[in-house]
Lab assay of single mutants.
Amino acid sequence: NQASVVANQLIPINTALTLVMMRSEVVTPVGIPAEDIPRLVGMQVNRAVPLGTTLMPDMVKGYA
């Protein structure tokens, strides 16, 4: 099963992502693939992302 990117903490709206904010986990539904974590660093979320939430492509500005 493919691992997805999951929020390791509450990520406030418009926050630029850092490695410490994300972890990989096998979840359903599948979100952004864990191998894209390096690409996500520095990108901003367009909404608040609660701890444990799977990051979906539409949550990250410029990802989709």
Rank of each mutant, 00 (worst) to 15 (best):
N1I: 15
N1M: 15
Q2N: 15
Q2E: 15
A3F: 13
A3N: 12
V5H: 00
V5S: 07
V6Q: 12
V6A: 05
V6L: 13
A7V: 12
N8V: 13
N8S: 14
N8Q: 12
N8T: 13
L10K: 08
L10Q: 07
L10G: 11
L10C: 10
L10V: 05
I11H: 00
I11R: 01
I11Q: 01
I11Y: 01
I11F: 02
P12A: 10
P12M: 12
I13D: 04
N14W: 08
T15K: 07
T15W: 11
A16F: 13
A16N: 04
L17V: 07
L17C: 02
L17S: 00
L17F: 12
L17Y: 01
L17W: 00
T18A: 03
T18R: 08
T18I: 07
L19A: 07
L19I: 04
V20Q: 13
V20C: 09
V20W: 11
V20I: 07
M21V: 04
M21D: 03
M21Q: 05
M21R: 11
M22A: 01
M22V: 11
M22Y: 02
M22D: 00
M22G: 00
S24W: 13
S24P: 12
E25M: 06
E25Q: 07
E25L: 05
E25H: 08
V26H: 05
V26D: 14
V26I: 13
V26A: 10
V27R: 06
V27D: 09
V27M: 14
V27Q: 09
T28M: 05
T28E: 15
T28K: 02
T28A: 08
T28Y: 04
P29C: 14
P29S: 09
V30L: 09
V30Q: 11
V30W: 07
G31A: 09
G31L: 01
G31Y: 03
I32S: 02
I32Y: 02
I32A: 03
I32G: 00
I32V: 14
P33T: 08
A34W: 07
A34E: 14
A34S: 12
E35Q: 09
E35G: 09
D36V: 07
D36S: 12
D36M: 10
D36C: 15
I37K: 04
I37P: 01
P38C: 14
P38H: 12
P38T: 04
P38E: 08
L40N: 01
L40T: 02
L40H: 01
L40F: 03
L40P: 00
V41E: 04
V41G: 11
G42Y: 10
G42Q: 06
G42I: 01
Q44R: 08
N46P: 05
R47T: 10
R47Y: 12
R47V: 12
R47L: 05
A48F: 07
A48R: 11
A48L: 07
V49I: 13
P50N: 13
P50S: 11
L51V: 06
L51P: 09
L51Y: 12
L51S: 15
G52M: 14
G52N: 10
G52S: 14
T53K: 12
T53C: 03
T53F: 14
T54H: 12
T54C: 02
T54S: 08
T54R: 05
L55Y: 01
L55R: 00
L55C: 03
L55M: 08
L55A: 01
L55W: 01
M56C: 14
M56F: 05
M56E: 07
P57G: 07
P57K: 12
P57N: 10
P57Y: 07
P57D: 03
D58W: 12
D58E: 08
D58V: 07
M59L: 06
M59C: 03
M59I: 07
V60K: 01
K61C: 12
K61I: 07
G62N: 08
G62H: 10
A64E: 11
A64S: 14
A64L: 09
A64W: 02
